[in-house]
Amino acid sequence: MYLKKIEGPRAVTLPDGRVMTRADLPAPETGRWVASRKARLLLAIASGLISRDYAIETYDLSEEELQSWERLAARHGAAGLQARSIQKYRQLEGELPKLP
Results as ranks from 00 to 15, higher is better:
L61G: 02
E63G: 05
R90H: 04
A23R: 13
A44I: 08
K5E: 13
P26W: 09
P15S: 01
T21P: 06
L99G: 14
V19Q: 10
A46K: 13
H76W: 13
L25C: 09
S36H: 08
I45F: 01
I45C: 02
P97V: 08
A78N: 08
R71S: 12
R90D: 13
P26K: 08
L43H: 01
R40A: 14
A46L: 00
A55D: 01
V34R: 14
T21W: 09
W33Q: 10
Y2R: 12
E63T: 10
S68E: 15
Y2T: 11
Y2Q: 08
L66P: 01
A78P: 00
A27Q: 11
K5F: 05
S68R: 15
A79W: 01
R32D: 14
R37T: 00
I86N: 01
I45N: 00
Q91D: 15
R75D: 06
R71Q: 11
K98N: 12
D16C: 04
T21L: 08
E95C: 07
R32L: 14
A55S: 03
K88D: 09
T30Q: 10
R52F: 00
A27R: 14
Y54G: 00
G31I: 06
A44R: 08
L81E: 08
K88F: 14
Y2L: 13
S36Q: 10
R52N: 10
E57G: 01
Y89D: 02
A73E: 11
S51L: 11
T30R: 12
T13Y: 00
Y59H: 04
R84C: 08
P100Q: 10
K5R: 14
S62N: 02
G17S: 04
R71M: 13
P97K: 06
A35S: 15
I6P: 00
A73L: 10
D16M: 06
L42F: 06
L42Q: 04
I6R: 10
A78F: 09
M1H: 11
I6Q: 14
G77A: 06
R22W: 04
T58W: 02
E93A: 15
E29L: 05
Y89S: 02
L66A: 04
R18H: 12
R32Q: 11
D24R: 05
E95I: 05
E29N: 15
E57Q: 10
L43D: 11
L72S: 07
K88T: 15
A83M: 09
Q67T: 06
Q87D: 13
K5H: 09
Y89F: 15
A55Y: 03
S85M: 15
E95Y: 05
R40D: 14
L81I: 10
E7W: 05
P26R: 07
L14Y: 01
R22N: 02
A79C: 03
T13M: 12
E70L: 07
L41D: 01
R22C: 03
Q82Y: 09
A73K: 14
Y59S: 01
P97M: 02
S85A: 15
R75H: 05
E63H: 12
A83Q: 12
E95V: 07
R90S: 13
Y2H: 14
V34P: 11
E70W: 00
E95D: 13
P100V: 11
G48S: 08
A79K: 11
D53V: 11
A23H: 11
G17H: 01
E93D: 14
W33M: 08
I86G: 06
R40L: 14
E93S: 11
L43E: 15
I50W: 05
T58K: 07
